[in-house]
Design a protein around this nucleic acid. Structure first.
Lengths: 113, 113
DNA sequence: TCAGTTGTCCAGGAAAACCGAACTATGTAG
DNA sequence: CTACATAGTTCGGTTTTCCTGGACAACTGA
């Protein structure tokens, strides 16, 4: 695990196209849905356990990187782990209602079939 | 211009991931924003004139195809033209509030800078 | 019939995503 | 201290997707 500081865009650098692109993937959308419920953050392994995706860990790593660079999550090293939190209040202040309406749409889709 | 019938998914076939992917592009997002305002639909050239993107027409054609196959727009041949309409009420019934919260986020981004 | 306009199809090159394997960093047990 | 386990990252190659110019097809009007 690299020890380089992790880049996080500030709120001005968060773009709607970047956010939509980051969420336009079933695994990443599931990750965000899970982090939305876990206020204290989760590490990668725990997140991937909760969603039931059998995704190779190198791919997971990339997913978290994409979410982080899009400004959706904030990551912090905790020992050997990396804890990720949804930047919910921040995104909410920039794009009010966006995240919840997307997550709600996702819920609706899965319960309607 | 081909004369093949245009495929349009029915509402059940419209997925949140598909919609997000279709909107995760600045040109396509601008197209949808423009179609949201033009209730009667627009053809490709007119749409592209209104947004100021110098996008090659083969690329435009693909953009409209992606939007159509994602279920966001309905296209109809009118002589030599192709009129595209946003399927707003339909999407709204499946994913309430989704489109407007995304378009609102886009507006916010462009006015805040 | 001929020219102009609108859009599609095709084929290439460019960019991005995917994933196994090797690697780094940290923690823990002996 | 050594050895091992765990959590993620990086790398390289393969596959997939995206972009675009150019040829083409469909319709319109003169």
């Amino acid at each position: 695990m690299s020890t380089r500081p992790l880049f996080h865009p500030d709120l001005d650098g968060v773009t709607i196209v970047g956010v939509l692109h980051a969420l336009a993937d079933p695994v990443r959308l599931a990750i965000v849905a899970e982090l939305r419920r876990a206020a204290d953050g989760l590490n990668c392994v725990e997140t991937m356990n909760r969603i039931h995706a059998s995704t190779p860990k190198s791919t997971c790593s990339q997913h978290f990187q994409i979410l982080r660079e899009a400004g959706l999550i904030r990551c912090e090293r905790k020992g050997v782990e990396l804890t990720s939190k949804l930047r919910y209040e921040e995104i909410e202040s920039r794009f009010p209602g966006l995240i919840d309406s997307i997550l709600q749409a996702r819920d609706r889709e899965s319960t309607q079939h």
